[in-house]
Design a protein around this nucleic acid. Structure first.
Lengths: 208, 208
DNA sequence: GTCTATATACGGATAGAC
DNA sequence: GTCTATCCGTATATAGAC
């Protein structure tokens, strides 16, 4: 009787509420979300949110932590893989992020916005999850730099460009689609194209 | 007596409340902002907000409209100037935006986030302000394309890249600075560098 | 125009029945 | 575990004095 409920997978009430909360928080942000919205979205009663999660804030914390992990830690293995070249890493990074962003287009603006509103509480966790120690990707860059195979400008520019070109189209997506009259399917196809284009452009920038 | 107050410039109570509201809304977003915060920030009494603006929402609308205009309409003349080349337009655009973003680093995430939460209400206005009719910048691009001087991929990619590389560093700025331990002055200096780098990179991408 | 005091509504959280 | 009913703090908005 007691261990029966431990076996349950993703259809438990608790999990359903979390799923609903994820959707509502993502759409409206923390402050604009009412626990009543989450209850309605989940199909369960308002009081169950407090029964399972104590408070709106605790529920939000759990979900936010999951998102931050999704953003950061999933790429840890990738950038530390000694068997792939720097260029291959760039290709894999871009491809990985674009896949994730097509699935969750609202994720970046949600995370970045909540971090902006509450930096102390959230950036600390993000750092925790970034793991310490040297990243293999950085080593590879430094080797290229010493060999004079890479421009002398601050390498952070390239990292910024990589993230910019990958992530920003999703953040500006709603406006962009509105201004160009582009539908979602065409937009996503364009993002798929960018999996190959972005590494190519970055490569071009990095050529001395 | 009646026309005296028309001459007042930016030090009226109304304007001070608007300034305060701009700051608080920008920092916390619409939902998380309390009219009390605005009152406190302005140095005036809570009730004056309703006296001058009827409601929190109306005050927000006014400010948001100003921001959207700032974003969109200030570049109208620039992209329609027949006397500058396409490349010069890119340089001017990047330079213009980076200046604005150094002044108002929180502006993009604020505007993009509020638009995401309330697209119907806000995107319509943005379109209004975008003015109709052909943009000279687009004509110049098409001429280059017909002359085969530009790659065959969707030109929207370049527009996206331009905006991405210009705007995104400010959106991701807090995280970026935290991860790299970079201070604000160094960050801004890096953004200044990008005024020259971004047009150069875009030019490289556009070469066939 | 600007303030104090207050009406009114809303949202998070809990008590308690089932 | 899940529901109904309700409490209570907080936030917007307004009435009315000065």
């Amino acid at each position: 009787m007691q261990n029966k409920q431990e076996i349950e997978i993703n259809t438990s009430t608790e999990e359903k509420i979390k799923d609903a909360a994820r959707r509502v928080f993502m759409k409206k942000g923390y402050a604009a979300t009412r626990t009543r919205d989450i209850a309605e979205e989940s199909g369960f009663n308002l009081s169950l949110i407090n029964y399972y999660f104590r408070s709106k804030e605790k529920l939000f914390d759990i979900i936010m932590l999951e998102h931050i992990k999704m953003f950061a830690s999933s790429i840890f293995g990738l950038v530390n893989d000694p068997t792939t070249s720097l260029y291959e890493k760039i290709e894999l990074l871009v491809s990985h992020y674009i896949d994730m962003l097509i699935e969750n287009p609202d994720l970046p603006i949600f995370v970045l916005n909540e971090i902006k509103e509450n930096p102390e509480a959230l950036i600390g966790r993000l750092a925790l999850d970034g793991r310490q120690g040297p990243v293999y990707l950085v080593k590879q860059w430094q080797e290229l730099a010493m060999a004079g195979k890479v421009p002398t400008i601050n390498p952070a520019h390239f990292l910024l460009n990589l993230m910019s070109m990958t992530v920003f189209p999703f953040i500006g997506g709603p406006i962009f689609r509105n201004r160009t009259g582009m539908d979602m399917a065409t937009f996503n196809a364009m993002m798929e194209e960018r999996k190959k284009l972005i590494p190519m452009w970055i490569k071009g920038m990095m050529a001395v």
